[in-house]
């Protein structure tokens, strides 16, 4: 077995351990579930209102979009944060000091964070089934669509998370990314049909993965009649694959060189300097 193969297998081992640590850590679970928890509570109170032109609950209509948003929050923003923290505490340098360790580290990170992202989607579905009527949770076709949208979504967001985590030196720097994500959420039809927005905002939304993850999950979980609230009155699966696929290609192309550059520059002295800066920063 080649050393790289061993590293990939060891990375899977790391992914399993980190995932186990994630599901047993209150902090990690909170990071994974805070958004859907808040959003679903809000939507629960809005369940009486309906999607314009239908008698379908606005709250239920928003559930897939919220889950799609959470895929981006857990699979991209949290990945970037974890990567930045791993640089601060020396986990990444440790990987660098180990033969093929960076490869193993990345494999482990992708596996464990993918696990957390799936968890962040599936766990909120359970209460949603009780809180909202009309979600197609008993339908095998719905689960099939959900599976491919989620899989493609993961391939689109995880590498981007790694790229952003490599570019930003500190967790504080990443708050820019979080803010941008929140702004995008506002225009991406997470809580309210995007067709209600001015057309130019719809175009902005359609560039980014948040909108398409939401659309894909709505196509899986909502009754077909709700398609009339979407742009072009279509679930647009082809376009979903196209845009998420394009982000995936971009991320997969960028991640290796960006990560390599970051890992090459990593040293004990840099780590110490960063920590000193972090300690001086007023909390």
């Amino acid at each position: 077995m080649s050393a790289a193969t061993v590293a990939v297998r060891t990375g899977l081992h790391r992914g399993r351990i980190e995932f186990r640590q994630g599901v047993t850590s209150g902090q990690d679970l909170w990071m994974t579930l805070y958004f859907p928890v808040f959003a679903l509570v809000v939507m629960f109170f809005l369940r009486g209102r309906t999607v314009p032109g239908t008698d379908f609950s606005l709250g239920a209509q928003a559930v897939p979009g919220i889950l799609g948003m959470n895929v981006v929050l857990v699979g991209l923003v949290a990945v970037a944060m974890v990567l930045t923290m791993d640089r601060e505490d020396g986990t990444l340098l440790r990987a660098k000091a180990t033969p093929n360790g960076v490869l193993g580290y990345v494999v482990g990170k992708v596996v464990s964070r993918a696990g957390m992202t799936v968890l962040g989607l599936l766990v909120p579905l359970l209460p949603s089934a009780f809180l909202f009527d009309g979600l197609r949770l008993g339908d095998a076709a719905a689960w099939l669509t959900l599976t491919w949208v989620l899989a493609l979504g993961l391939v689109a967001v995880l590498p981007l998370g790694i790229v952003l985590g490599s570019l930003f030196e500190s967790v504080q720097g990443l708050s820019v990314v979080t803010l941008a994500g929140m702004a995008l959420m506002g225009v991406s039809g997470v809580f309210y049909p995007v067709t209600a927005l001015p057309e130019w905002l719809q175009w902005i939304a359609q560039v980014f993965p948040i909108y398409w993850l939401g659309l894909g999950l709505r196509s899986a979980l909502l009754p077909d009649a709700l398609v009339m609230a979407e742009i072009g009155e279509s679930w647009r699966h082809l376009e979903t694959v196209g845009v998420l696929g394009a982000w995936a290609v971009l991320g997969l192309l960028l991640a290796p060189p960006v990560l390599r550059r970051m890992a090459r520059r990593e040293s004990g002295a840099r780590m110490a300097a960063r920590r000193e800066k972090a300690l001086r920063r007023p909390m």
């Binding site: 505490d89 020396g90 440790r94 004990g268």
Partner: peptide, 10 residues
């Protein structure tokens, strides 16, 4: 190195 703080949960 002088100061590792990594893998605290392991």
């Amino acid at each position: 190195l002088q100061s590792w703080r990594d893998h605290g949960r392991w």
